[in-house]
């Protein structure tokens, strides 16, 4: 999870673009794969996404991200492929009622490819843009009230804290002899359920402490223009947006 959403520090062209530009581009690239029904075009968009991401965070990390997406959509492909009944039967599994058709394969492949192509730009955007920059630009340029932006960034920040808390509680229970490493799924749920209460209590405490700390540091005094960082819109932003617009247009017409 951390790998997929995490920010990757760096100083590439993408890192330096205006956060708003990056958001628009990633949404544009997402949309582009829904505007076409051609497998080839989507593959081309995926290749472009990969190139983009590699230029910012390196090929290795980009491939790793792509691989995890491929695995995920492969599972969805397998599930999906049995549900399309139209078209010529390609393969019939032993009992006879379950079969795969050519249409099914093409449709599911399109679905899987679209999923990959849609998730890539979002993940790439998040790996080159700090959440705080996104929230700052939302407050400054889009005039979203700071309170809402703060709630969302806080929620995102708390996810790893919660999972850490959960691990702590589980370790404490393991030390008391509870065996979480059971293969039985239902049994595991039964063991984990009672842990929700202490997790909830400690989480609420943490959030309360965070709120107090924020207020003690003048949270309520903040105005829209309090932000120190500014996000100028430069030539590189215009160029990047133009390239993105071109790609969206191409996917529509090709």
């Amino acid at each position: 999870m951390k790998g997929f959403f995490g920010y990757n520090p760096g100083n590439s062209i993408l890192h330096r673009l205006n956060p708003l530009t990056k958001i628009v581009i990633s949404i544009g690239l997402c949309l582009s794969c829904f505007l076409t029904r051609s497998h080839i075009v989507i593959l081309a968009v995926i290749a472009f996404n990969l190139l983009l991401s590699a230029s910012a965070v390196g090929l290795k990390r980009s491939l790793k991200m792509l691989l995890s997406l491929v695995k995920f959509s492969a599972v969805l492909f397998v599930v999906q492929v049995f549900f399309v009944k139209q078209g010529n039967v390609l393969l019939r599994l032993p009992p006879g009622v379950i079969y795969i058709t050519d249409k099914g394969v093409l449709f599911s492949l399109l679905f899987a490819l679209r999923l990959i192509a849609a998730a890539m730009p979002l993940s790439a955007m998040l790996s080159v843009t700090r959440i705080s920059d996104i929230s700052n630009v939302f407050v400054r340029s889009l005039r979203i009230p700071y309170k809402y932006a703060f709630v969302i960034t806080t929620a995102i920040r708390f996810i790893p804290l919660f999972s850490e808390e959960m691990t702590n509680i589980m370790e404490a229970q393991t030390a008391r002899g509870v065996q979480f490493d059971t293969k039985n799924f239902l049994k595991k749920i039964r063991l984990l359920l009672p842990l929700c209460v202490p997790l909830l209590i400690s989480s609420v405490r943490k959030i309360e402490g965070g709120a107090i700390s924020a207020e003690l540091r003048g949270f309520n005094l903040r105005k829209r223009t309090s932000g120190y960082k500014t996000y100028p819109f430069g030539w590189s932003d215009a160029a990047a947006l133009a390239v993105c617009g071109l790609i969206v247009a191409l996917t529509v017409f090709v």
Binding site: T154, L161, R205
Partner: peptide, 13 residues
């Protein structure tokens, strides 16, 4: 003020 819970009081990443 620096509060008792160190993780909870951070507001940024």
């Amino acid at each position: 003020s620096v509060l008792q819970d160190i993780d909870g009081q951070m507001v940024s990443s």
